[in-house]
């Protein structure tokens, strides 16, 4: 850790000791959430999410492919997230880091486990189904990529219009039908810094963070969880954060409704 990181880290801890955060938010407050859809016209669906100064962009492409042999009547959904080298000074070109792979897999897992996209509706004909590729690009990093990327992927899916399938190929010029969405999964990620737990960490807070817990829910049940970093959580802390996560689900949903016509 360089000197500046050490100074920033002790500043964040000092503030939390007084029950404060660097941007004066409450412990379980999200930063301002802004969701815009229809950003990339060429894509079947797209969304840009600004979560404070964190900015991510998600695009959806649908491709007719052969189904997996064990699910011949269902399509596929593949969500991945990428940390672009232009998103932060510490990001570098080259193969994805373990951190990037974890992010990508956690975002995919929540949406997959929730069954947000009705895979049966992606069946085209015997031996042909739609594969839905959701690629999330991190454009500017200021913490909490897990929640920002999940929001962007979900928003892009709700914005997706399915191409027509004719003469054995996708007709990308005719995209009328909405992609059927069964539920919207939301993600809440908590950072534990010393003995304090906060929601929606900034980059400075993540620099001081000991442990991280992501909880993804569709509002009915918990769909996926991921604990990260070397710190620990007690079981009672986790129980409490699950309650917060269900409460926040409703707040985040309201942002989805706002942008929908």
């Amino acid at each position: 850790m360089d000197a500046l990181s050490v100074v920033k880290s002790s500043y964040i801890k000092e503030l939390l000791g007084k029950g404060e955060r660097e941007d004066s938010r409450g412990m379980f407050d999200f930063r301002k959430i802004d969701i815009k859809t229809g950003i990339i016209g060429q894509a079947e669906g797209s969304a840009q999410v600004d979560l404070g100064n964190t900015r991510v962009l998600a695009g959806v492409k649908m491709v007719p492919e052969e189904p997996h042999s064990d699910t011949p009547n269902e399509g596929n959904i593949i969500v991945s997230a990428e940390l672009l080298p232009l998103a932060a000074v510490e990001y570098e070109t080259g193969p994805p880091s373990p951190e990037a792979i974890e992010l990508s897999r956690v975002v995919d897992r929540g949406i997959r486990a929730a069954g947000s996209v009705d895979l049966a509706s992606l069946f085209i004909e015997e031996g042909k189904v739609w594969s839905v590729y959701v690629d999330v690009y991190v454009l500017n990093y200021d913490g909490n990529l897990f929640d920002a990327c999940t929001m962007a992927a979900m928003a892009a899916l709700t914005d997706t219009h399915m191409p027509k399938y004719s003469d054995g190929a996708a007709d990308y010029k005719s995209r009328d039908a909405d992609l059927p969405i069964k539920n919207i999964v939301t993600s809440t990620t908590f950072g534990k810094i010393g003995n304090s737990i906060v929601l929606d960490t900034t980059a400075n807070e993540e620099n001081a963070m000991d442990a991280r817990l992501t909880i993804q829910t569709d509002g009915e049940v918990i769909r996926a969880m991921q604990k990260g970093l070397k710190g620990s959580f007690s079981t009672s802390e986790i129980d409490k954060l699950i309650d917060v996560s269900f409460d926040k689900h409703k707040d985040v949903l309201s942002h989805f409704k706002k942008h929908k016509k």
Binding site: R109, G110, R112, A113, A114, L213, E220, V221, I222, R223, A224, M225, Q226, K227, S232, F233, S234, T235, I238, D239, I242, D243, F246
Partner: peptide, 23 residues
């Protein structure tokens, strides 16, 4: 020694009650 959780991953579906039972 303190029953703290060091690794936790989950996917599928758990109600709050089922999660408590599982832990």
């Amino acid at each position: 020694r303190n029953s703290n959780v060091l690794l936790l991953q989950m996917d599928g579906g758990f109600s709050k009650q089922q999660f408590k039972e599982a832990i």
